[in-house]
């Protein structure tokens, strides 16, 4: 196990180095072989972006923290709503019939198109920011949780009911633990989405946050800051993903979704 972990680290490092080399090479080709006049904006050198990041790390981290906290709030709200909806829908077939089609419809409404309407309704910029982030995240959580709850085989449910367990007990002992791996799959998708949503909301108009930095950089043609901000947002997304992975390991240690264990097994 210890060896697997060490190997894993080597793999990760090789991947990171590989990507940087390919990126650097691509930027070089674009600039000196293709002679693209817009090369610096299309694909700047990673080292130039890294330098910009180091020069502005404080500003970027501060902006990132603002965005991340909004994302976390929206994520928490979206997750709670998503789980609740899934539970309600699994409780009653009628409920599912009513709610599910509208869940889908709700996702087809482009949130950016909704933004001015949400501002109209909520009338508070901060609340509407969290609402939008929650709105984007609740769907994958709900869909995954529901398919998890529905995947419980009927015989198992019947067995529990036959020993006179009530509905609450069945959920607690069977359904929830079973649906956990599905839920976490949903959370893994939702967490970076919450970050993305939060950045979008910054870009809609806000005083602080990484999205504002992206917008300003885009607008003023400072492509290195732009790419450094995009990189920062990507990091934020990855961190959010790993927070969920970490939580999953904590909650479901029997699961086999971690790469190290996979390697041992397959």
């Amino acid at each position: 196990m210890a060896i697997a972990k060490k190997e894993q680290r080597v793999v990760a490092i090789v991947w990171v180095i590989g990507i940087i080399v390919v990126w650097e090479l691509a930027a070089f080709l674009l600039k000196y072989v293709v002679h693209d006049p817009m090369a610096a904006t299309k694909l700047p050198y990673p080292h130039a972006v890294a330098m910009t990041f180091l020069e502005n790390w404080k500003m970027l981290l501060e902006a990132g923290a603002v965005t991340f906290s909004r994302a976390a709030l929206g994520f928490a709200l979206g997750t709670s709503v998503g789980i609740l909806l899934a539970v309600f829908m699994s409780l009653s077939k009628t409920m599912e019939r009513i709610a599910f089609p509208y869940l889908i419809v709700s996702q087809m409404i482009p949130v950016l198109g909704l933004a001015p309407i949400i501002f109209n309704i909520v009338r508070d910029m901060n609340v509407s920011r969290v609402v939008i982030a929650a709105y984007i995240t609740f769907f994958p959580v709900s869909v995954n949780m529901l398919s998890g709850l529905k995947s419980v085989e009927q015989d198992k449910k019947d067995l529990l009911f036959s020993i006179a367990a009530n509905k609450f007990k069945v959920y607690q002992k069977l359904m929830f633990p079973f649906a956990m791996s599905y839920l976490f799959t949903g959370l893994k998708i939702a967490a970076p989405m919450a970050v993305t949503a939060s950045i979008l909301v910054d870009m809609l108009g806000s005083k602080s946050g990484i999205g504002v930095k992206i917008l300003y950089a885009l607008y003023s043609n400072s492509s290195n800051i732009f790419w450094a901000s995009v990189l920062t947002s990507a990091f934020m997304g990855i961190i959010s993903f790993y927070i969920v992975v970490f939580a999953e390991r904590l909650c479901l240690p029997w699961q086999n979704t971690t790469p190290g264990k996979e390697g041992v097994r397959a």
Binding site: L73, A76, T79, P177
Partner: peptide
């Protein structure tokens, strides 16, 4: 055993919420 899992899930969600509210109050 499973009950403790459920509790830990709840604990994590609570933690996220706490961090989130903590952060947001921090920013404000």
């Amino acid at each position: 055993m499973k009950k403790s899992k459920l509790t830990s899930v709840l604990a994590v969600i609570m933690l996220i919420l706490l961090v989130a509210t903590g952060c947001s109050s921090g920013t404000s």
